[in-house]
């Protein structure tokens, strides 16, 4: 089943075309990676799809809804969530409360209802809290639920941001460099978490530089270079694709061998 279909997506910043006519499809139940050298347009692609930036051309159809015109919170409500290259956690709150904010679009309690503790408010709060704890367990960090987000180590913060994104009940989750700054052990934990997330029925699109992780977890890889899609396919074929080796891996061949 098709989840997301992107057609001819284009974004220009002045004279630079950051995303140039990109077309691709994401299917249900897959982990798909987007790779490419720095400046290839990966993060811009995510920003366009999640309402943080406006596309110049193209379309994006997510489960029958055209999402390019939507503001970020509307995209979330549609079932498309994301994380950020520089984590955007709420450092003034506990880990649990961070995840609870992720429940915002799936819960109802308004200011008046909350102030007056109207019937149903307590129950919704209890259910939301249980839901949040379940997600913290899913990414294996429930032990730090009550810690301040600001005090958490980098790897835990990345997992927490994923848990918060999952709290919005996405059908598709976009992860922007989830392994950046993680050590080998932490990357292992992350990979396990990604599998568990996929097994709950959430599809994943992962922008990542860690080739080891990309080759291990992804079912399908899209390669961007200078805003254009230059290749697409399963990891084994991508590794051998001459266009990829030339345009992307070729320039840092030795690095690629080290990573992979």
């Amino acid at each position: 089943m098709t989840l997301l279909h992107v057609e001819g997506l284009t974004k220009r910043f002045g004279g630079l075309t950051a995303v140039d006519g990109v077309t691709f499809t994401v299917y249900e139940g897959v982990i798909q990676a987007v790779i490419g050298p720095n400046g290839a347009g990966k993060t811009t692609l995510f920003n366009l799809l999640t309402g943080f930036d406006r596309a110049d051309e193209g379309s994006a159809d997510f489960e029958g809804a055209s999402i390019l015109e939507m503001r970020p919170h509307r995209v979330v409500k549609q079932g498309l969530a994301r994380t950020f290259q520089n984590t955007q956690l709420f450092d003034n709150m506990t880990a649990l409360d961070n995840v609870l904010v992720g429940r915002y679009s799936r819960t109802k309690t308004g200011m008046v209802a909350a102030a007056l503790r109207l019937p149903g408010v307590g129950k919704e709060e209890r259910l939301a809290t249980e839901y949040a704890h379940r997600l913290l367990r899913l990414v294996d960090i429930d032990d730090i639920a009550d810690a301040s987000a600001a005090d958490l180590p980098h790897g835990t913060r990345r997992l927490l941001e994923i848990a918060r994104a999952l709290a919005t009940e996405p059908r598709l989750l976009l992860l922007d460099e989830p392994a950046a700054g993680l050590n080998t052990a932490e990357t292992g934990v992350l990979a396990e978490a990604l599998y568990r997330i996929r097994d709950t029925g959430v599809s994943l699109v992962v922008v990542e530089h860690d080739m080891g992780l990309v080759m291990e977890v992804s079912d399908e890889i899209i390669v961007l270079n200078q805003g254009r899609k230059i290749a697409e396919g399963p990891p084994l074929l991508i590794q051998k694709d001459p266009r990829v080796i030339e345009a992307y891996l070729g320039e840092t061949e030795s690095e690629m061998m080290d990573d992979a």
Partner: peptide, 10 residues
């Protein structure tokens, strides 16, 4: 805490 994070949380 983070306006961007809040938007991304719905």
């Amino acid at each position: 805490g983070s306006e961007i994070g809040a938007e991304a949380s719905g």
